[in-house]
Amino acid sequence: MHELDPLKESPSQTAGPYVHIGCMPNSIGNHGIFEEDLGARMVNEDTKGERITVRGRIYDGTGTALKDAMIEIWQADSNGLFNSPSDTRGEADPNFAGWGRQPVEPETGEFVFETIKPASVPAPRGRTQAPHISFWIVARGINVGLNTRMYFPEEEAANAADPVLGSIEHRSRVATLIANREGSTYTFDIHIQGENETVFLDI
């Protein structure tokens, strides 16, 4: 038997409009404290896998793109391994941390990640998850960071067998998690509210 757990998770508070100061100071010209913003570069020339660009915007309830958001992504490498001690299945590509962080562009609201396409990863009970990238979004007005996932449109069979996509009750909403592809560029727009509201996850 477990003891009753004594503590509650600290409440979240909005990242506010000035999240850049702490998390990406160089991106707003506050140089000289940290050499480089963490997560700004995901790949180097030795990273294995297919190079892709992931871009998009985050829209509020009026259809306006957020100009002050910060996005973090987390993904497996080209062999489906995570660069994390909690993944004990094998050694992930040492040239790929699997984690990226970007501000949206302050004029256009666009975010851009240069990364690699992840392979599929296991799911509980012997199933398989289709290749996907986990997203976490914070901004002014967002009280608790929003989690979602981006899937790949060319992975039709894998997407059809994916347990997360499969658990979306309203099938018309599955499309909100699937990017549009043009060559090696994937566009993944996120709608916080409205008709096309993205499926957000309680992970």
Partner: peptide
């Protein structure tokens, strides 16, 4: 600011 930046549909529990 939360009015237009809050999802209106329930989160999908995973």
């Amino acid at each position: 600011t939360s009015i237009l930046r809050s999802p209106q549909k329930p989160l999908l529990r995973l």
